[in-house]
């Protein structure tokens, strides 16, 4: 299996070099930071390679749903949707007047109204595809049990991971009494992050877990899992055997702690994944900066090394996120003995 992944990586790198050559010939001024950020953040259309761009549906909420395809924005066009005018500026959709005038403040940011953007973006479509892949894999796995024995070869690789989550993450952190309640959540979380991390390493496919909205959403699930339990609040406000004065200090600390935990979870995953991607991208960009193909002999092995490191990081970060979620959930029960 790993052989195939390596081959895929090499092929993608080769494609990247070819792309790089083309763009070098065009002699466009290369703005590295802008280019990297454009590749990493979410966008309204799926840029595959060269001129091949797949437009995705845009859904706006502005006194009613407004749905149209993103290719209407190409070449800085103004979209007229039954009397409402919209314009895209730096990846954000603004409401404008008939002529598409944008009004800027001192810092150069538009002060026009922004409609609520619920578009099916590049990341959303990838999440949907990956979710379907996960469902397919695990449905196949659940159906290929033959009297306690896994008959599917790929399932044999997945089963130890599931057992690892049960025995190393769920039971030690949450405790043997309560772990079954949270196990489906932890398993879903782990596999969602792991598969997204791994697929995110491949070029073309956006790195979903390197997007702060996604990690924030994931950590919010953990947050709601924690605060939905009454025991959590009980142990913040009713600390036994502690003087009143210290209580006044402790209660705010404990209260803030609950909100800080999901934020740290969110930023840890986001930063780790995005750092790897920026590193790979920077190394490959050296070719564009120096405009010399010989740099490839230096930057490609390094990028390959970082890519392999990324595979490791993918597993580690998925493990850490799940483990810390389990730890935070487990704290509710352990403190109330």
């Amino acid at each position: 299996m790993f052989d195939k992944i390596n081959y895929l990586l090499i092929i993608f790198f080769c494609l990247n070099i070819l792309n790089a050559k083309k763009e070098c010939k065009k002699e466009i001024r290369f703005n590295l930071s802008q280019e990297i950020i454009e590749h990493i953040i979410d966008s309204h259309d799926f840029h595959i390679c060269g001129n091949l761009i797949i437009p995705l549906p845009i859904i706006l909420w502005d006194n009613g749903f407004k749905i149209f395809l993103s290719n209407k924005f190409y070449n800085q066009k103004i979209v007229n949707y039954s009397g409402f005018f919209y314009k895209k500026y730096k990846n954000i959709i603004y409401k404008t007047d008939k002529n598409g005038n944008l009004y800027f403040d001192k810092n150069g940011n538009p002060i026009n109204k922004k409609p609520l953007d619920l578009s099916i973006t590049k990341n959303v479509i990838t999440i949907i595809i990956i979710s379907i892949i996960i469902i397919c894999i695990f449905l196949k796995m659940a159906n290929s049990y033959n009297k306690y024995i896994m008959s599917w070869t790929f399932g044999k690789y997945l089963e130890p991971i599931i057992l690892f989550i049960i025995n190393t993450i769920a039971i030690p952190n949450i405790g043997i009494k309560k772990y079954k309640e949270y196990l489906p959540f932890l398993l879903t979380l782990f596999f969602f992050i792991l598969i997204n991390n791994l697929i995110g390493i491949l070029p073309i496919i956006p790195n979903i877990t390197g997007n702060i909205s996604i990690t924030l959403s994931l950590s919010l699930f953990t947050f709601f899992m924690i605060i939905s339990n009454k025991l959590c609040w009980k142990h913040i406000f009713c600390i036994p055997n502690i003087p009143l004065l210290i209580k006044f200090i402790l209660i705010p600390i404990e209260f803030i702690e609950i909100f800080i935990r999901p934020i740290t979870l969110c930023i840890r995953l986001f930063a780790n994944i995005i750092a790897g991607h920026i590193l790979i991208f920077s190394l490959i960009s050296l070719i564009f900066i120096f405009k010399n193909i010989l740099i490839a002999s230096f930057s490609i092995p390094f990028a390959l090394f970082i890519s392999i490191l990324e595979i490791l990081v993918a597993f580690i970060q998925a493990f850490i996120f799940t483990n810390l979620s389990a730890l935070f959930i487990g704290k509710i029960f352990k403190k109330n003995h």
């Binding site: 979410d42 953007d117 619920l118 949907i128 489906p184």
Partner: peptide, 21 residues
């Protein structure tokens, strides 16, 4: 742009993750 969470993505991610779960 990198560290500003977008509401649309959080919304979809929440729905998809709940469905997946």
């Amino acid at each position: 742009d990198l560290v500003t969470p977008s509401i649309g993505l959080i919304f979809w991610q929440t729905i998809i993750f709940i469905l997946l779960f």
